[in-house]
């Protein structure tokens, strides 16, 4: 229990730090939201009026405290560019990004874990060596290029796939899949490659440990050895990587949503940054932070579920 409380306090501190950093970075960044909004023709009084209207002329700490207060009550302020509550904009886009990230994650887990175990059991045989080579390439491929290749050679060839836009799950499940599979694959492929290597290493490390010999000496089947004992033990080191992969997946959605014109949070973020829409950027960054930190918190909980030795501490 103490372990989880400590982890939770760490989570709060992380979110706080990120909020301060984004706030600070935006002050240093060149470009002015007011000028962007009013255009080059605007005169000085107009600019001053709008600035005080939006509260941007107040001292920084005041702006930050104000924003923090809003955050705690669930109010993220209004977008300068869209003149709409940031919260509404986010909730509008969130389902797209969540679906994309969720699908990506499923792909990564379903492919990389069995593949990694397979390669570990055939260490240094042809199948293992060729898998390691292929994943080396998979890791090096940039996702924007991969996305375009998938559009060109898969999306354009098969009618099933839509190469831009989004169809909600509630409307049609196959429709949603037709818009999400290719972008998800784009993010997943490099992550599968990375995770495959971690799984392979973790399994190789486990299968030479004493307890595996004991299980074999009990006459347990190879399936029991691999999928009950070795898998659960290997999941402990893999979980650490899993947290990192989730962060990569969330970050990956930003680029891939551009490539596939998906109306998700990532696309919104790009619009917000290019318009210097500070409240919106701050809101989106907070969302990403909370998502990543929450995932890591879940990972920590999973640790203690998987490994009884952690529960005691």
């Amino acid at each position: 229990m103490m372990y989880l409380i400590r982890r939770f306090i760490l989570l709060i501190i992380t979110i706080l730090l990120v909020s301060i950093i984004t706030f600070g970075v935006f002050q240093i960044l060149p470009g002015d939201p007011i000028r962007t909004m009013l255009g080059t023709e605007a005169d000085a009084t107009q600019i001053e009026n709008l600035r005080s209207e939006l509260g941007l002329d107040r001292p920084l700490y005041e702006q930050y405290a104000d924003w923090m207060k809003g955050l705690l009550t669930g109010d993220l302020g209004n977008s300068i560019r869209f003149s709409m509550p940031v919260k509404d904009l986010l909730f509008d886009r969130l389902p797209v990004t969540m679906s994309l990230a969720g699908l990506t994650l499923c792909m990564v887990l379903i492919v990389s874990i069995p593949l990694g175990m397979f390669a570990a059991r055939r260490q240094n045989k042809l199948s293992d060596v060729s898998l390691s080579t292929v994943t080396q390439i998979g890791m090096a491929v940039p996702s924007f290029w991969l996305g375009m290749m998938l559009i060109l050679y898969v999306g354009m060839k098969f009618d099933f796939f839509k190469i831009s836009g989004y169809i909600p799950w509630t409307q049609s499940v196959t429709g949603a899949l037709s818009t999400l599979v290719l972008p998800a694959l784009t993010i997943a492929i490099p992550q599968i490659a990375v995770n495959f290597r971690y799984v392979r290493t973790a399994v190789l490390e486990q299968i030479q440990l004493d307890y595996v010999r004991t299980i074999r000496s009990k006459g347990m089947s190879e399936q029991n050895v691999m999928y009950k004992h070795v898998l659960k033990n290997s999941m402990i080191p893999i979980l650490t990587v899993f947290g990192l992969i989730m962060a990569e997946v969330v970050a990956g959605t930003i680029i891939v949503e551009q490539v596939f014109s998906l109306p998700g949070v990532g696309q919104l973020l790009i619009t917000a940054i290019s318009n210097r829409d500070f409240p919106l950027v701050q809101g989106i960054v907070m969302y990403i932070t909370v998502a990543v930190v929450a995932i890591n918190f879940i990972v920590d909980i999973l640790y203690s579920v998987l490994d009884p030795r952690i529960r005691l501490r």
């Binding site: 004493d210 299980i215 004992h229 033990n233 009884p308």
Partner: peptide, 8 residues
């Protein structure tokens, strides 16, 4: 010390 599976 190492002959039993630590997670079961």
């Amino acid at each position: 010390m190492t002959s039993l599976d630590p997670v079961f």
